[in-house]
Design a protein around this nucleic acid. Sequence first.
DNA 1: TCACTAAAAGATAAATTTTTTCCTTAAATT
DNA 2: AATTTAAGGAAAAAATTTATCTTTTAGTGA
Lengths: 135, 135
Amino acid sequence: METTVELLKEHSLKVTPQRLKIIAMLEKHGHLTIDELYRLMLQEFPNVSLATIYKNINQMAETRLIQEVKIPGGKSVYEIVKEPHLHMVCDRCHKVEDIIIGTDKIIKEAETASGYQIQESFITLRGICPDCQKG
Amino acid sequence: METTVELLKEHSLKVTPQRLKIIAMLEKHGHLTIDELYRLMLQEFPNVSLATIYKNINQMAETRLIQEVKIPGGKSVYEIVKEPHLHMVCDRCHKVEDIIIGTDKIIKEAETASGYQIQESFITLRGICPDCQKG
DNA sequence: TCACTAAAAGATAAATTTTTTCCTTAAATT
DNA sequence: AATTTAAGGAAAAAATTTATCTTTTAGTGA
């Protein structure tokens, strides 16, 4: 398993406590908005500047350590880049989850229908999560 | 074929020249950003306020006459609500296109994998359009 | 380990984007 | 046509994001 320090170094980013914390938060929570990152960060670094969050998020996104996920009808969340996956958003509790299923078929079909050479897919599905179906 | 006037009335929105123009622009161009809508609008209504664009876009989105499409790595565009479809974004010329292909399979698969009751899908694919493949 | 260099953090300001307010104007209803 | 209600325009305010400047810190190599 790769350490967070290694992850930063591989992306040519200096290892700072703030960056380690951002990654730790994303690893723990999966998906966080800028605002959520800032609030959580303040608990451990009371003097952190919001600019530090923005600068780091932008740098990590440029180096593709993390990735922005635009949420329909909501604020963008950020996640650590892993294998390609879909996003599920719950209408009730608004949580965002990853699911990993094959996208080859729909991409092939879209390539045929459109003539595009497709490089990447962004798929987000909105609905009711299993927890909220019960409650 | 439904008229623009009827479209507005069905959504309980007053028929104003500005709204008719917004819809006409979206019907002509397919997908436009706030900024593009504002610039085009200024040509016909030199005194139009940017707030008018925002207020109308938000109202039309609430009544689901139009819909926001969040573009990965770009600004949101708006389109008139039609039948469900996918979006293709060209990496080179940055145009946004609709393609209509079945999404039942991937939605079924995602429902099985996640346990969600899926209500709506947002699928955007990034790649090179046929025109840019030639040029 | 200690300096040196380059980059990051924090604070603040600036720029950008979006929303709100207030007043005037226009559309819908009777 | 008169009344009611909502929309438009202008401006301010709020919210979000980026840039600037100075101080601090991490990485590098002697």
